[in-house]
Amino acid sequence: MTALRLTDLTVRHHGPRGPVAAVDGVSLEIPPGTTLGLVGESGSGKSSLARAIVGLTPVHGGRVLLDGREVRARTVGDRRRLGRLVQIVLQDPDTALDPRMTVRQTLVEAATVFHRLDRPARAERVGDLLELVGLNPRFADRLPRQLSGGQRQRVAVARALAVEPGLLIADEITSALDVSVQASVLNTIRDLQQRLGLSMLFIGHNLPAVCYVSDAVAVMRHGRIVETAPTEALLRDPRHPYTRTLLASVPSLRTSLPGERPS
C-alpha cells in the first residue's frame, strides 16, 4: 500500500507554437489502499499525468510524493527505486507485450528485477501471477499473438504486479476491449483491490467503467482537475458544469426506464 500525493504538478509538451501545458498545476491525493478514478476526454492530459508519475515523461513543475517522500526518475537507480513502488499498465493491448517473448519469459523477467528466484520458484511465481489475474496457467508458454486482447491486458497487469508495487496505475486499460471483455477485466481489477489492498490510479474516458472500480473520481479537463469527489457523491451531486455534461452524455440502457429499477 502506497500513498500518492501530487502537488501542483506541471508537464509541458513541445507544440507547434511553443510549449503546451498538458498537465497544468494538478494536485491530487490517493490515500493508501484506495482507488482514484481519473476521467476526462482525449487530450485532457490524463496520460501525461500518469507517465509523469512513473518517470516516462519529465516533470516541469510541482512534486510527486510517494508515502510522503519525493521521487525522481533521473537515473536508472532512481527509476528502479520508483519501479518498486509504482507500476503502470498502458492502453494498447497490441503492443503491451514484447511480441517475441512468451508469457512466462515476460513474467519471469519482471519477477526477477528485484528478487533472485531459482527455477522452481520462478515456475511457481508465474503460476501465482496468472492465477491472480484470472488466467489459466497453460497460457504461460504462449506468445502474445496467440492471446486475445483481453488476455494480453491481463498478462500486462500480471507483469506490473510481479514486482509487488504499492501503487498501480491503469491508463485506459479497457478502452480497446469489447464490452464483455471489459467487464471481466474490471472484475479482475476489483478482485485485485480486495485481495492485495493495492492503491490504484484508474484512468479512463468511460465513466461507468471508471466509477465501477473507483472509491473517488477526479475529472480532468484541459490539463486541470475540475472536480474531485467520492464516487457516490460525484454521481449523485456533480458540482462542476463540465462533470454534469459528461454524466449526461453517457449512453445508458437502464436510465431510459427510470422508476422501474427497484432501489
Binding site: L56, G83, V89, V163
Partner: peptide, 10 residues
C-alpha cells in the same frame, strides 16, 4: 507500450 512498461519495471 511494452518498452515503456519494461522501463518502468526498472
Amino acid at each position: 507500450d511494452h518498452l515503456a512498461s519494461a522501463r518502468v519495471l526498472g
